[in-house]
């Protein structure tokens, strides 16, 4: 149990001594699977070929990444005040630098942030002030969201909103570190997740995002079959993920391990890198870059990330980031 969680509970008890606390904080909200993004298919323009197809990466896997970036989050209910959840969330991100085949924390160590997530619209404002006075940032879970709506006074709705906000904070921490790297270093970094939330990172030639979850597949129709039929060591043609609000990135699917006998997404990752068009890159150069980055990623498929359940898609450097962060928060 994170000692800061106990500390936050004591702070809360200082304000409301009679408030019953969650004895053990309950299970982390992330494990409850409350917020589930619906699966969807989105078409994306193929830029490398006329139609999306399988391409052998070519050559042997080669080591190219100098560092790995990932973040984790953990949130628990401190107490229910008038039936409404008071959530304690902690997010952390770290860059692990590879030196002589061993991983070490990059300069400055991990970025760790702890916050209280409160439905301020439904709770006394003095509670937020009390937490702030104790040095804790407070996030309003009843602030107007992307859907332009205030969550209803339903505890589960407020929990979903809290988890969503914690996730945003975690992505923010990852983004902060990624930008620091891109500003400070000129070496390739393997980033867990997408790139396009930060323009600086999305445009950087050194940042490579690797997405393990496939709730959204950027292919439709025949292209989807092509992706499902990718064999170990093969990639798809490069396509472009445009965004009206974010920087577009080049992307492709890469099969890290042969899927025979497994589900169609086994060993499948989606790679994001700087957009060729924005970089003024020729098509052959884009192909060469996609192949090279794919070989770098394939080189990270050993050692295995077992016993993590996502071991078929998770490289060891990212698992190391998560293990490190679990140890420090």
């Amino acid at each position: 149990m994170d000692p800061s969680f106990r500390s936050a509970q004591r702070t809360l008890q200082g304000w409301a001594p009679d408030l019953p606390l969650q004895a053990d904080g309950g299970a982390p909200l992330e494990t409850l699977g409350r917020v589930v993004e619906p699966p969807r298919l989105l078409a994306a323009p193929v830029v490398e070929d006329s139609a999306l197809r399988a391409r052998p990466v070519g050559g042997e896997p080669e080591v190219g990444f100098l560092a790995f970036l990932d973040g984790i989050q953990r949130s628990r209910v401190l107490a229910y005040h008038d039936g409404l959840p008071v959530v304690f969330g902690v997010v952390a991100a770290v860059i692990r630098l590879r030196v002589n085949r061993r991983l070490h924390s990059w300069t400055g160590g991990p970025l760790v942030e702890r916050r209280i997530y409160l439905p301020l619209a439904y709770l006394p404002s003095e509670l937020a002030a009390h937490f702030r006075a104790a040095g804790l940032d407070v996030v309003d879970t009843t602030a107007v969201g992307p859907d332009q709506a205030i969550p209803i006074r339903h505890p589960l709705a407020l929990l979903d909103r809290a988890i969503h906000l914690v996730q945003e904070d975690r992505e923010g921490a990852e983004q902060t570190l990624a930008e620091r790297w891109c500003n400070a270093e000129r070496a390739p970094i393997f980033i867990d997740g997408g790139l396009n939330k930060s323009e600086l990172v999305a445009r950087s030639p050194n940042a490579v995002g690797v997405v393990k979850s496939h709730r959204t597949l950027y292919v439709e129709g025949d292209a989807l079959d092509q992706v499902f039929r990718l064999r170990g060591g093969e990639r798809s043609s490069v396509f472009r993920i445009p965004s009206s609000r974010r920087t577009p990135v080049a992307s492709w699917y890469l099969r890290l391990r042969d899927p025979a006998g497994h589900d169609p997404l086994f060993g499948l990752v989606r790679v994001e890198a700087a957009d060729a068009e924005l970089a003024g890159e020729s098509l052959p150069a884009l192909t060469a870059r996609a192949d090279r980055l794919s070989r770098w990623i394939l080189a990270e498929s050993s050692p295995l990330s077992l016993p993590d359940g996502r071991w078929d898609r998770m490289v060891y450097g990212i698992r190391d980031c998560e293990e490190y962060l679990r140890a420090v928060i």
């Binding site: 050993s302 050692p303 293990e323």
Partner: peptide, 17 residues
């Protein structure tokens, strides 16, 4: 992780913690 080949172990990019 090394396809049952001890020689592949030395090629791993990262050593385990």
């Amino acid at each position: 992780g090394h396809d049952g080949e001890p020689s592949h172990a030395t090629a791993a990019a990262t050593e385990r913690a």
